Amino acid sequence: MNPSWPRGRLRDVLLCVGGRGDVNEADLSAAVTSALRELAAETLGERSLAELVTVGAEDHPWGRSLGLRLADYDVELPDVLLYADQSDLPPQVKESCPTLSQEEWEAVLLVSKLIFRGLQSEPEPARDDAGQHPQATPRPPRSVAREQFCQALAAISERVDLHQHELTGQLRTALLNFASETPDNKEAAQRIAVLHTGEPQQGPRLCLSRSGLAFSKVVLSADGCPVPSCVLEEFPDLTQDEWNAVIHVTGLTLMAFEAELARDVGIATVSR
């Protein structure tokens, strides 16, 4: 697949991060960085800090998996969101999204964290020569649960034959199968829905079921908010720019799994 528009290009390359096969990590990182910058330029303009995020891996006792991480701080984006999802709803976000509740804010951050986890590659077996990884390494295939979660995310923009209720149902099921049915995850799953919101030409996207607010809108409305204290407690050296980069890339990733605007698709069709 070679999508014609920035969201599709970013979606494809993000799905490649956890895909099976040999991967040159430098090439993959460059492709993700390029796709992020392209969508960021269109969406955020000069204030984008997406360049502070890269593709990389960290050795753990259970193995090594590729994913999105802050380049200089060297921490995975889902780890940052792990400590952010209990943060207070920022006044700036509340002003931009007046109907948003504290519980919905927490759900947006939790689900975003799980999406980043789902896009990571399966852990490779731990090696005796940790830290001496070749530039190209064979990645194991995704687990069934991870693959179904990725497919459910991709279906939001790609399965035009499915009704939004079907897309919502399969996404909720896939999320819980992948992330486990903890009380927090079950509550968050009930707060998500795939909806057509905004103008009539707006395609389906991941939204909050009660308010109808798009996840990407909620996250990007936090652009420039101070780093939450609960995040600084765990990552005391995290800078404001790095926190903004986490917000930017989270929002861009959510946008990548939204359908293109109908007017854009129409323009593309006419121009061919």
Results as ranks from 00 to 15, higher is better:
Ser229Leu: 10
Pro140Val: 00
Gln202Met: 09
Gln92Glu: 14
Ile267Met: 12
Arg11Glu: 11
Cys207Tyr: 04
Thr173Trp: 06
Arg139Cys: 02
Gly19Asp: 12
Ala40Arg: 05
Gly251Tyr: 02
Gln120Pro: 01
Ser157Met: 09
Gln151His: 10
Ala40Gly: 13
Pro236Gly: 11
Leu28Tyr: 03
Gly169Ile: 01
Gln240Gly: 06
Leu238Asp: 12
Glu103Lys: 11
Leu176Ala: 07
Glu106Asp: 10
Val53Asn: 13
Asp128Phe: 05
Trp5Cys: 01
Val93Gly: 12
Val93Leu: 09
Ser211Gln: 15
Glu76Ala: 12
Lys217Gly: 04
Gln170Trp: 09
Gln135Asn: 13
Asp184Phe: 05
Val219Phe: 00
Met255Pro: 00
Leu171Ser: 14
Pro3Asp: 08
Arg159Ala: 13
Thr54His: 08
Arg11Leu: 03
Val108Ile: 02
Pro90Glu: 13
Glu51Asn: 10
Pro138Glu: 08
Ser221Met: 11
Glu106Asn: 14
Val270Glu: 13
Leu176Ile: 08
Ser180Thr: 13
Gly251Asp: 09
Gln240Tyr: 01
Ala259Lys: 05
Leu213Met: 07
Leu39Met: 11
Gln86Asp: 07
Ala136Met: 05
Pro123Arg: 04
Asp184Ser: 14
Glu166Tyr: 01
Pro123Gln: 06
Leu89Cys: 08
Leu238Pro: 05
Glu103Arg: 12
Thr173His: 13
Val80Pro: 10
Val111Thr: 01
Val93Pro: 14
Gln132Arg: 07
Cys230Gln: 08
Glu95Val: 01
Ser180Met: 10
Ala145Asp: 07
Trp243Asn: 08
Leu261Trp: 04
Leu89Thr: 04
Glu42Lys: 04
Ala26Glu: 15
Arg117Gln: 14
Gly56Val: 02
Glu25Gly: 12
Ser101Gln: 11
Ala130Gln: 11
Gln86Leu: 03
Ala152Ser: 15
Gly251Lys: 00
Ser34Phe: 08
Pro3Cys: 01
Ala31Lys: 09
Glu181Phe: 06
Gly21Ala: 02
